[in-house]
Structure formats: C-alpha cells, structure tokens
Amino acid sequence: MQYPGPIAAIEVIGLERRFKGAVKAVAGIDLEVAAGEVYGFLGPNGAGKTTTVRMLVTLLRPTGGQALVAGFDVATQPADVRRRIGVALQEAALDPLMTGSELIELQATLHGIAPRTVRARGAELIERVGLSQAAGRRVGTYSGGMRRRLDLAMALIHEPEVLFLDEPTTGLDPTSRLTLWEEVRRLRDEGTTVFLTTQYLEEADQLADRLGIIAAGRIVATGTPAALKAEVGRPHLDLVLAPGTDLRRAHEVVTRFGDHRPVADGCHLSIEIARGAGDIAPILRALDDADVAVAELELRQPTLDDVFLAKTGEHLEGSGNPHSEAAAELV
C-alpha cells in the first residue's frame, strides 16, 4: 500500500517584496507549513508580517522568490489559490449596512457557491462563532469582537484548506481574545491548516504548533515554541535585592551557581540555573551566608520573548509580557 508523501500546505522559497523606492519589506524568507498545523508568524509591528500574508493570499505580487499555497503558485495561479484559502485580514472589513447573514451569503457567492447550497453551513458557522442572535442585525451595530468572529465565519464558508488569520485579536478585549483562541484550537482539531500572524507572545505560545519569528523582513528563528525556548536557555532565577544591599557581593555569590543574564537595573539579578527548582535552596543559603538580603525571587522558564531577545537583541514590544514591558520602559 502506498501512502502519499506529506504535502506542504504552504511552501515559501526566497520570498521578497520591495516597495517602490523603499527598502525590502520582506527580504527573502523561506518557510514551510505542513497540512493541518497551526503556524504562528510572530513579529513586532512593521516586521513584514502583513506584507508576507498579503503575498501569500495573492493580494500583493512578490517581487522575488516563490510561494506555493495549497500546491499553487500565488503569482501565476492566483485564482486556484483563492479558491482554496480563507482569509481574515486585520481590518475585518465588513459592509456596515449589511446584516451578518447577508454578508455570509455574499461571501459564498463571491466564491462561486450558490448561497442556497451553503445556507445550512452558513447558519452553522454563525452559530459556531456565537452570532446567531445578531445574524439579522446590520454589522454597523456589532462590537469589534463580533466583527472579527463574523469575519472568521466568512473566511470559512467555502471550506478552505488553508486559513489565514492576520492579527486576529489585535485590539480585542481579553474575553473576545479567548473566544477566538478557542475557535482556532477547534479548527486545528478539525484538521484545518492555519497561518496566524501575531505580535502577542502569549498568543503564539498558546496556539501555534510551530513558529516563525520575523524581524526586519527576515525570519530569524523557526521551530516549535518548546524547542525555541529550550534553544535559548535553561530556566533562570530572578532576584530582587533589598535596598542597601551590596550588589557586587551578591554578584560574586550567584556567579558560582550559573551564568549571568542581562539585568534591567541596579537591584535586579538574574541567573541561569541548570536544574530548575532544585538549585534555588543552595543559592539562597549562599546569599544568606554572605549577608545579602533578598526582597523577592521568581523562577522563570524561558519565554518567547527571551527567544526574540536572543535572536534580535531586542524585546518584542507590546507583547503583553510584564517582564519585557518593564524592560522596554527602562531602556
């Protein structure tokens, strides 16, 4: 018996986009997304995420390289690509004068499907994104979260093989964000390939099977979130020293237990520890012996922000991660 080989849902080689008279917004990226996985595309604003997505969904022509989506070339077979993808873009552009169900029907028609053949599916999708009550209302009366959910339902009406979500939760309140996350997980469980861009570390961490980190138009790291975090380092211990403590002395003590990590200010210390929690007690004992008073301590696992920091030398701004925000403030 012969099995078909694994088919990549998205295959990108050396993709480039140069805008008139400007630098390359996307400067040659390679990536591969397997069918059925959720691929997170993480990067700060202006890194080239949206430009990449717009090329992958055929809205923007690449100026170099090649991209295959669902097996078709975005530059030379755009209609074939469009038939197989669903797209929810950042703005969630919806006609405010139309109702939710009218928009679903229009979307089906635009994809060449007779609305009557998808009526049941449309109703089911609306139900699924929790808009049954609002389906007959004009979209102008919807909240931001409702619009995003309707946009998602529209993107799914023609049963796409690959779903593109461009910053699906930017600007949403925490509850709406969680609702959308649940929906993405459900889609993954159903086997839909999802390409998701985000500037939120937590979102990438929670949702993505694999990640690509983009900065300044280039992919700087790829892998599963766990592998990426493991790659940048072991768990580390953050210490806040009591006021008036001799910082140099504290340094000397902790250096015996592991490597220093960059510290934010004069009363913080941070060291990598090999064995995790088991290392804490000896360190504290040694500090106590040296008369160094510790005000606070925290054992931290590496985060995607640490990955980002390691790969680009900068924190990912606006990541919703308190550590990185504090650091950004102090810079």
Partner: peptide, 17 residues
C-alpha cells in the same frame, strides 16, 4: 472608500475573474 476601508481586499480575494 471600499479600498480605504479594506472591503476591496475581500473582493480581490474572490476567485472570480
């Protein structure tokens, strides 16, 4: 206006000619 507001993208994403 549709271009400014992003609706036109939706139109262009349709596989129709």
């Amino acid at each position: 206006r549709d271009i400014e507001q992003g609706w036109f993208d939706r139109l262009m994403l349709a596989p129709a000619r």
